[in-house]
Amino acid sequence: MFEKLSIVVFNKKQNTTHAFLISKLLILISTFFIFILFILSCLYFYSFNDYKNHVKNKAKFNALQLDVNNLITYLLNNELINNEDLHKLNLLETSDFMQSFSMPVDGYISQGIKIKDKHHGIDIASTFNADVYSTQNGLVIFSDYVEKYGNMIIIAHANNYYSIYAHLNKKLVHARDYVVNKQIIGHVGESGNSDGPHLHFEIWNNHHIIDPRNLIEEYKEKDVSIR
């Protein structure tokens, strides 16, 4: 009788111990999941804020008139480039700089510069996915999608020159990348407001629009546009 009573008491103690351990384990598991949910909530909150800032910055960029002075100010203010980057570009200055611009893509000029229509560059008709090259050594200061221009790359060169490549199908370089003359930076496409595969190409010097046909001799022979 005493042995049976001892066994019953022992079993009750075991059950109590098991119940205690199970409750502890459940508390630990609950705490762990609450911690995970907290971490995920924090990540979502910060990611959402980053996304909102990204959308806000992109909307601000889209709202800018494509003027290099405004553009550089925008990029500097958003820390996409810094003064040190621009200073390095000045070290690239060479005496034959003006003679060293090359064709960004092989094709025929279908449309020239039309200031009144805010068409600040030339359109070069080419085949879809044709290679697009950097026209000069420089620093990529922008590589993203812009509503009007589609996939667009902007490269800063020495002597305060800038080249713009728009309506790309694909971009192969990122902001802060250094590129060399004739390096492949993307492929011809029809992204953004485009009627067909072509490269929209602009050259600026500070806030002045430069006609690429005056710098790239080959395009004078391949110009079928009405100026």
Rank of each mutant, 00 (worst) to 15 (best):
L66S: 07
T127N: 15
A130T: 12
A158N: 01
L92Q: 02
L92E: 02
G112L: 11
A125I: 14
V146W: 01
L86H: 05
N69W: 03
A158Y: 00
N70P: 05
I155D: 00
S126I: 09
M98Q: 10
N62A: 04
K118N: 14
I81N: 01
H87W: 05
L71Y: 09
E147R: 11
A125Q: 12
G112E: 08
S110K: 10
S100Q: 12
S126D: 08
P104H: 07
L71D: 05
E147F: 12
I113H: 06
I153V: 08
T94E: 10
K116D: 15
I155H: 00
I115Q: 06
T127I: 15
E79A: 12
N62F: 01
G107H: 10
K118E: 14
E147K: 09
G107Y: 11
K116I: 14
Y145N: 06
E93V: 09
I154N: 02
D96A: 07
N62M: 03
E84C: 04
L80N: 07
K148V: 13
A63F: 09
D85V: 00
Y145F: 13
N82Y: 03
F142E: 08
I141N: 00
A130F: 05
V146P: 01
L139D: 02
M103V: 14
V146S: 08
F128R: 10
N69C: 06
Y145L: 07
N151I: 05
G107A: 13
I81D: 01
N151H: 09
I124F: 10
L89W: 00
G121E: 06
D96N: 13
I81L: 04
N90K: 12
Q65I: 11
N82F: 04
S95Y: 07
F128I: 13
E147V: 09
F101P: 02
F97S: 02
G138I: 01
N83A: 11
H120G: 13
G150L: 06
N70I: 02
L86P: 01
F142C: 03
L66T: 04
M103R: 15
M103C: 13
D106S: 15
E84K: 08
F128S: 13
S102V: 15
V146A: 09
K114D: 15
S126R: 05
N90S: 12
N90G: 05
D117Q: 14
G107K: 11
P104V: 09
I153Y: 01
